[in-house]
Amino acid sequence: MEFKLTVTCDCGKRDELILKRTTNIYEGKVYEDFSSITDGKFKEDLFITQQNSPDEVVIECTSCGKEHNLTT
Rank of each mutant, 00 (worst) to 15 (best):
M1W: 15
M1P: 10
M1D: 10
E2C: 01
E2S: 12
E2D: 10
E2H: 09
F3K: 08
F3Y: 10
K4A: 14
K4Q: 13
L5N: 01
L5I: 08
T6K: 13
T6G: 02
T6R: 06
T6P: 00
V7K: 03
T8F: 02
T8L: 09
T8S: 06
C9V: 10
D10W: 14
D10L: 14
D10A: 15
C11W: 13
C11N: 09
C11L: 09
G12V: 13
G12C: 10
G12D: 06
G12K: 04
K13V: 14
R14C: 10
R14I: 13
R14V: 14
D15N: 07
D15L: 09
E16M: 03
L17Y: 11
I18H: 07
L19D: 06
K20V: 13
R21T: 10
R21G: 08
R21E: 10
T23E: 15
T23I: 15
T23Y: 07
N24M: 13
I25P: 00
Y26H: 07
Y26Q: 10
Y26V: 15
E27L: 08
E27S: 06
G28W: 11
V30E: 14
V30L: 10
V30R: 05
V30Q: 08
V30W: 08
Y31M: 01
Y31W: 02
Y31F: 13
E32Q: 11
E32N: 13
D33Q: 12
D33G: 06
D33W: 12
F34G: 05
F34C: 04
F34I: 05
S35W: 12
S35K: 04
S35V: 13
S35Y: 13
S36D: 10
S36K: 01
S36A: 08
S36G: 02
I37V: 15
I37M: 12
I37P: 02
T38V: 15
T38E: 14
D39E: 14
D39P: 00
D39R: 05
F42R: 03
K43Q: 09
K43R: 05
E44W: 02
E44T: 06
E44K: 09
D45N: 14
D45M: 03
I48M: 01
I48S: 02
I48V: 11
I48K: 01
Q50N: 02
Q50P: 00
Q50G: 01
Q50T: 08
Q51R: 11
Q51D: 09
S53N: 01
S53K: 11
S53G: 12
P54L: 12
P54C: 08
P54V: 14
D55F: 11
D55V: 06
E56A: 05
E56V: 09
E56K: 07
V57W: 00
V58F: 00
V58N: 01
I59M: 00
I59T: 01
E60V: 07
E60C: 04
E60K: 09
C61L: 02
T62R: 10
S63C: 11
S63N: 12
S63M: 09
G65Q: 05
G65C: 07
K66Y: 04
H68E: 07
H68I: 08
H68C: 03
N69L: 03
N69A: 03
N69P: 00
N69S: 11
L70F: 15
T72L: 11
T72G: 03
T72F: 15
T72P: 00
T72R: 04
T72S: 05
